[in-house]
Design a protein around this nucleic acid. Structure first.
Lengths: 123, 123
DNA sequence: TATAAGAATGATAATCATTATCAATTCTTA
DNA sequence: TAAGAATTGATAATGATTATCATTCTTATA
């Protein structure tokens, strides 16, 4: 594993906010100023393929997650917060489709709306 | 509703295969040869905002769906098939998060893997 | 019915996240 | 330590989507 790849992994693995590739690159540059954006993209894809991190498809840039178990996410339209919805037993839910599904390689599950913190906000 | 918007809606509403914008445009052109790709994109976004169709974020182009109730999708890595996983009671599942979630505007849920049809395929 | 204001279109340029290319650099390992 | 492979940094290219803008419909009102 190259030094750069290690940095990219460290950044994702120590982030709790589901950063975009751009944000991973920003944080990686703080650990290794010479690291290039293309290298960050390359290693994010590599780590995803090695099942060491998870990619969440989203408009305005994919997001990356250290939590490997299948789980859902919530994205707040108002504050932009992006957080895990842990505790849903997706494995059991998806077992109901064993007639259609042979194997599962990834789960991309994003719920969008407004969070409780933004309940009364009008902006 | 403009003639073009009606065509775009008709195409999505009569498609069972979760087409991309490009494919919606292709089908729309068969009904109205003069329709423009930009108009298709515009109206897909408009219809999405009116909650008349659903957008599913995916690499290689978002997909569109006529089924409005919250549901999951499966995308097969091998054959590319993209189908609904109906029967999961997502509403009930998400009710468990009423402490964090105030309102839900959309659910974007895609499971990727191999389907039963591709079980023994090696390509 | 004429017409003016507003909305939507077609054509195309621009944007932006991501990927491809490629020479230069950094491992490996024999 | 030198050859070969892998990876990098820099940058060009790609491709989906959005923005722009002059033109073409709609529609409400005189």
């Amino acid at each position: 594993m190259s030094k750069q790849k290690e940095v990219v992994y460290t950044v994702v693995n120590s982030s709790c906010d589901h950063p975009t590739a751009e944000l991973v690159a920003f944080r990686a540059k703080q650990l290794m100023p010479s690291i290039n954006l293309a290298t960050v993209y390359r290693n994010l894809t590599a780590l995803e393929n090695e099942n060491r991190i998870i990619r969440i498809h989203s408009d305005k840039g994919d997001r990356f997650d250290k939590t490997l178990c299948h789980h859902a996410h919530f994205k707040c339209d108002k504050c932009g917060e992006f957080f895990d919805l842990l505790g849903i037993d997706l494995q059991k839910t998806l077992d109901n489709f064993k007639n259609e599904i042979h194997t599962i390689s990834s789960v991309d599950f994003v719920v969008t709306g407004t969070c409780k913190n933004c309940k009364d906000k009008t902006y």
